[in-house]
């Protein structure tokens, strides 16, 4: 087994334009939100995101407009935390983010 430890900065450097990313967790629960927040500080763009019930970490990349496509079954933050603000911003009206909705 190899030691795979690296810094957040090194790990976010692995992400390149146009990549398809599966993002873990669910709604406000155990999503890698600090990782995607760190990604917003990089110029990476045209990401495609997927998950069965994407939550906060996905919403961050929709809000930053670094993603152009989101595959999801349910995309929201649930109850008190509300609808997914980045998704709404990116998809409503003239929003450019493409929704590919599964179940």
């Amino acid at each position: 087994m190899k030691n795979k430890m690296m810094s957040l900065l090194q790990a976010t450097d692995l992400i390149k334009d146009n990549m398809l990313l599966a993002i873990g967790g669910n709604a406000m629960h155990r999503t890698p939100s600090l990782f995607t927040l760190a990604l917003t500080r990089k110029p990476v763009k045209n990401l495609k995101l997927c998950g069965a019930a994407p939550g906060l970490a996905t919403d961050i990349l929709l809000a930053s407009q670094q993603a152009d496509t989101s595959y999801f079954g349910f995309s929201g933050l649930e109850n008190e935390a509300g609808l997914s603000p980045g998704m709404r911003k990116g998809m409503e009206g003239e929003g450019k983010i493409r929704a590919i909705e599964g179940s």
Binding site: F74, G76, E92, A99, S103
Partner: peptide, 11 residues
């Protein structure tokens, strides 16, 4: 071009 984008079907 939805006015309100809902969360989706969730199953």
């Amino acid at each position: 071009r939805p006015k309100l984008r809902g969360p989706g079907g969730a199953g």
